[in-house]
Amino acid sequence: MEKGYSIKSKPIYGTLVWQDHAMHHVVIAEGEGGKALLKLFQQKLPREPLSVLYLAADPQAEKYATTVQKIINEPVTIKDSQAELLNALKATLDSCYMGTQFYVAGTEGFIWKVAAVLRDAGVDDKNVFKELCGSLGRRLYCVHCKTTNENVHHNIHVCTGCGRHLIVREHFSRLMGAYMGFMIDAEVPGEIPAAEEIYP
């Protein structure tokens, strides 16, 4: 990778920190994002109303869920599928007002699926704080056949939709929650470098 080179559409994720001016905190996490939840509650247990939604689909995540529940001593909404969690989030949004701050922790795919639900509800993205946790696997949009490939770990990926070898371009769409993939050997068919696992 060339020194100093970056594409500016790629999101830079931070560390979740309580926003003191909030009227209400909504925390949404999945899997390894449970660790970000624990870190957040180690900062403090906020005074303001709090909603916590957690996707726990494996034993490690269930352990995080149990610990979080003990620390905050308030009900935590725990779901074991992403669809259910996002539905629970939509229901929570019905009781949210101006001044609510949102905190999201998980894989990049999860973060932007949550962001899409929030956007549809009219939440401004600057009130959504994001921490990337767990897998660095990417969502990859094939610009040729429009398939979105989930959990892409290699810089060159065979599209599940059209079978083309796609190179992952560092160009990210927040609306799609995906990177752009385009055919690597369009000029000279078959000229395909070895794929490297760079998003473990």
């Binding site: 500016k8 559409s9 610009v143 160009h171 769409s173 927040r174 799609m176 752009m180």
Partner: peptide, 23 residues
């Protein structure tokens, strides 16, 4: 470039792939 992919992007996100110009 692709309008379908760049839909909804901010001005700088949309132009992000252009080399050197952002810097």
């Amino acid at each position: 470039w692709s309008m379908a992919f760049d839909a909804g992007m901010s001005f700088k996100e949309w132009h992000a792939p252009v080399p050197h110009a952002p810097e």
